[in-house]
Simulated assay, not measured.
Amino acid sequence: MLQSHNRLKMWIISALFAAIIGILAQVTIPLPLVPITGQTLAVGLAATILGSRYGTLSVILYGLIGAIGIPVFSAMSGGIGVIVGPTGGFIVGFIPAAFLTGLYLEKTSFTVINAMIANTIGMLVTLMFGTVWLKFAVDTTWTGAFASGFLPFIVVGLIKAFLASWVGITVYKRLVSAKLLSTPHQVSS
């Protein structure tokens, strides 16, 4: 019974994080091909706080909600066209990024330093997926894709990785100490 209760609670929290990702996606700094958004910060927060399983679940829910047309992607957009468009690779890349970020923390420890390493890995994974996708979606060169989909986001990505790490670990520790969140090792599928 307790196991079932914990799992339901984590599913609900994952759904809340999917909503948080959608809300932070609306914080946008427009650039020519790919805007800077709050999505990656929210993905980092979800993975840092919820771990690999439930952080990834929140990202998958976010992607599915957007894919069916609910305007949760940046600039209040939604639909499968966004997923297959130039920025779709970043959205798809959020899934392995969240999983790897959470997994790194679960395999090491939930500290700000480990979270910074994990979120930096997650940022790089997202940028790699986005850059490869962008290259084929707009039929550009590798240099053009790298210049548009990777380079402009490194410094901002590191800042967001730090914020996700610091805020995420602080919130994670407080939620665990208040018994509002189970550690990843206490919740099984």
Rank of each mutant, 00 (worst) to 15 (best):
I60G: 09
I60V: 15
I60S: 09
L61V: 14
L61W: 10
L61I: 13
Y62C: 03
Y62F: 14
Y62R: 01
G63R: 05
G63F: 14
G63W: 15
L64C: 09
L64I: 14
L64Q: 07
L64P: 03
L64S: 07
I65G: 00
I65Y: 02
I65W: 02
I65Q: 03
G66M: 01
G66I: 02
G66L: 01
G66F: 02
G66C: 03
G66N: 00
A67T: 15
A67C: 08
A67M: 12
A67R: 00
A67L: 12
A67W: 04
I68V: 14
I68L: 03
I68M: 08
G69D: 08
G69W: 08
G69N: 10
I70F: 14
I70G: 08
I70L: 14
I70N: 07
P71L: 09
P71T: 11
V72G: 06
V72R: 09
V72N: 07
F73K: 09
F73V: 10
F73L: 11
F73P: 06
F73D: 01
F73N: 06
F73W: 11
F73M: 11
S74N: 13
S74H: 13
S74E: 12
A75R: 15
A75N: 15
A75C: 15
M76R: 15
M76H: 15
M76L: 14
M76K: 14
M76S: 14
M76W: 15
M76P: 11
S77D: 12
S77Y: 11
G78I: 04
G78C: 02
G78N: 03
G79K: 02
G79V: 06
G79E: 00
G79S: 00
G79M: 02
G79A: 01
I80R: 05
I80N: 06
I80H: 06
I80G: 07
G81S: 13
G81T: 13
G81H: 14
G81L: 11
V82F: 08
V82M: 07
V82C: 05
I83T: 07
I83Q: 01
V84F: 10
V84S: 08
V84H: 03
V84C: 04
G85I: 08
G85L: 04
G85T: 08
G85P: 07
P86G: 07
P86T: 12
P86E: 07
T87L: 05
T87N: 04
T87F: 06
G88A: 05
G88C: 07
G88L: 04
G88Q: 03
G88E: 05
G89C: 02
G89I: 00
G89R: 00
F90P: 00
F90H: 01
F90V: 02
F90N: 00
F90Y: 13
F90R: 00
F90G: 00
